[in-house]
C-alpha cells in the first residue's frame, strides 16, 4: 500500500495553514484525515496525483472549507476553559478558602458601611485591582506572542485560549463599578454595602483564577488535554 511521504505530510500541514487553520492540534487532525483519504484513493490507483486528490478531498469540507471545524473547536476549547474556571471557583466555597472569602465580604461591607473614609479605601483597592489586571493582560499577551515563536508553528488552541481569555474575564473588573451605580440607587445603603462587597470579592476570585492559578497550571493541563505533546519532538 502506498503511503504519504514525510514531505507530503509537511505539505498537508502547510495546506491547512494556507486555509486559515492556525492551531497545531486542529491542523494535526485535519492532516491525518486528508492523508487517510488520499491513501484510500491510492489503494485503487496508486498513480493518482497527490495535489489533485488533496483538492478533491478539501472540497468535501464544503464551501466554508475548514472554518466550521476551527470555529467549533474554538467553542469547545472555550467551554473547557470555563469548566476549569468553574472547578477552581468551587474550591473557594470549600474550607479553608471559604474563610478568606467570608472575611473579604465582611471586610468590604464593614469598610463601605463606614461611608466616606471606608469608601475611599475600597475605591483605592479597586483602582489597584484594575492596574493589576491591565498589567497581567499585557504580560500574558507578551507570553502569547513568545509562545507562538517558541513552538515554531506548533501553537495549541487551548494555550491560546489560556493566554487570551483574560481579556474577556478582565472586563469584569469594570462590573463592580457598573453595579455600583445601579445598586446604590435601588437598594438601602446597608444592603448595597453587602451586595457590593460580594461583587468585589467575586471579581477578585475570578481574576485570581484567570491570572494566577490557571496560568500556573497551564503546562500540566495542556499535557493532559493534548497527549500528542508527549509524542512531539518539540
Amino acid at each position: 500500500m502506498k503511503n504519504l511521504s514525510a514531505e507530503q505530510v509537511v505539505r498537508l500541514y502547510e495546506f491547512t495553514r494556507q486555509h486559515y487553520v492556525e492551531y497545531y492540534d486542529v491542523q494535526t487532525e485535519l492532516v491525518d484525515h486528508l492523508a487517510s483519504a488520499i491513501e484510500k484513493h491510492w489503494q485503487k490507483d496508486p498513480h493518482q496525483n497527490f495535489e489533485t486528490l488533496l483538492q478533491k478531498e478539501f472540497k468535501k469540507f464544503g464551501i466554508f472549507g475548514f472554518s466550521d471545524v476551527v470555529e467549533e473547536r474554538q467553542q469547545a476549547m472555550q467551554k473547557r476553559y470555563f469548566q476549569l474556571v468553574k472547578k477552581e471557583a468551587l474550591q473557594f466555597l470549600k474550607l479553608p478558602k471559604v474563610i478568606i472569602v467570608a472575611f473579604s465580604i465582611w471586610l468590604f461591607s464593614f469598610l463601605l458601611l463606614q461611608k466616606e473614609i471606608g469608601f475611599v479605601i475600597v475605591a483605592s483597592i479597586l483602582v489597584l485591582e484594575i492596574i493589576y489586571v491591565f498589567y497581567r493582560l499585557i504580560q500574558l499577551q507578551k507570553i502569547s506572542k513568545q509562545r507562538r515563536k517558541q513552538r515554531e508553528g506548533k501553537y495549541y488552541l487551548l494555550e491560546h485560549v489560556f493566554l487570551n481569555m483574560g481579556r474577556g474575564v478582565g472586563g469584569f473588573v469594570i462590573s463592580p463599578w457598573q453595579w455600583y451605580w445601579v445598586a446604590e440607587k435601588t437598594l438601602p445603603y446597608q444592603y448595597f454595602a453587602v451586595v457590593f462587597a460580594l461583587l468585589i470579592t467575586f471579581s477578585f476570585i475570578l481574576h485570581y483564577i484567570v491570572f494566577r492559578i490557571l496560568p500556573a497550571k497551564k503546562e500540566e493541563i495542556l499535557h493532559r488535554v493534548y497527549p500528542e505533546m508527549k509524542l512531539e519532538k518539540v
Binding site: 468535501k60 464544503g62 466550521d68 471545524v69 473547536r73 469547545a76 476549547m77 467551554k79
Partner: peptide, 14 residues
C-alpha cells in the same frame, strides 16, 4: 460530511 463530523466530535469531547 467532513464539515459536520469534526464539529460534532469536538462538541462531544468538550
Amino acid at each position: 460530511t467532513e464539515g459536520a463530523l469534526y464539529p460534532a466530535l469536538h462538541k462531544l469531547e468538550a
